Simulated assay, not measured.
Amino acid sequence: MIKRRYGERKDWKRVLQRRYVQTFLTTNDFRGYITLLHTLKVSNPLYTRYGEKDICIVDNGYMWLQQFPCDKNHCVTTMFDSSGNVVQWYIDICLHNGVENDIPFWDDLFWDIVVLPTGELILKDEDELEDALLRSIIDKYQYNLALNEVENLKSLIDKGNFSLIKLTNTHKEILSNMLK
């Protein structure tokens, strides 16, 4: 079964104190939901490993901005440290984005792209996509959709034309002002 994931991340037990805001945005550059989770207090930091690097992606004071563009097969989570610096952009490949009970969600198609502030691009969980196809969790159409989306996004990122990365600070500012 494809997992549905929600922008508010209400079930995340690591986060002890939080603030959360969301809005629907229509501009010349973007149409969809944007959300911001501010982790005021966490039970313990969360690190992820890329090659030889351990990167902290959640700690006290971190913010996670999520962008859910309408009619696209991806959503982006930008993780900011407590000083406001981008830690990483995490791009989930998805069947679709939507809204349920007023909360934005994505139906996860397993494969992910990570872009680090250095420009390094990392593909994650391709094996999960393959396994989902083999176990009939997804069908061939959904598998091909994920493959095509990854190739399209890699091309946009390589050329510096992936608009959601460019809109990161603008979207964060909009939502940060709503937190005040």
Rank of each mutant, 00 (worst) to 15 (best):
T170K: 15
Q88A: 06
N148L: 02
I2C: 11
F110C: 02
G84S: 02
Y20A: 04
H171A: 04
Y141S: 10
Y33F: 15
S83L: 14
E149I: 05
S176D: 10
Q142V: 08
W89A: 06
E8V: 05
H96L: 12
R19H: 04
S82H: 12
E128G: 02
R135T: 14
L167D: 07
I103H: 01
L36K: 04
S163A: 08
M63S: 07
L123T: 05
I57D: 05
S83E: 12
C70A: 08
R4I: 13
Q17W: 03
I122E: 05
I122P: 06
I34Q: 12
L156Q: 14
T78D: 04
R18V: 07
T170S: 12
K72E: 15
T35W: 09
M1V: 12
L25H: 09
I137C: 10
G7E: 07
G98D: 03
Y50D: 03
N169Q: 11
L36W: 06
L145E: 09
Y90C: 06
Q67G: 05
D112R: 04
R4T: 15
N97E: 07
H96Q: 11
H96F: 13
N161F: 06
I137T: 14
L46G: 01
Y20M: 09
D131W: 12
H38G: 00
D108K: 02
F30D: 10
W111E: 01
W111G: 02
N85A: 12
V150T: 07
E173M: 08
W111L: 01
D71P: 00
T39Y: 01
S163Y: 10
T35F: 05
R19A: 09
Y62R: 06
R19C: 00
T118P: 08
G98F: 09
T27E: 11
D92H: 11
N28M: 07
W106Q: 11
F80G: 01
L129P: 02
V114N: 01
V87S: 07
A132S: 08
K180E: 09
Y143I: 03
F24K: 13
R14F: 02
S155P: 03
L134S: 13
M178T: 05
E8T: 00
G51Y: 14
W106S: 15
F68K: 11
F110Q: 02
N97W: 03
D125P: 04
N85H: 15
L95N: 11
Y47M: 09
I138F: 03
L175V: 02
V86S: 05
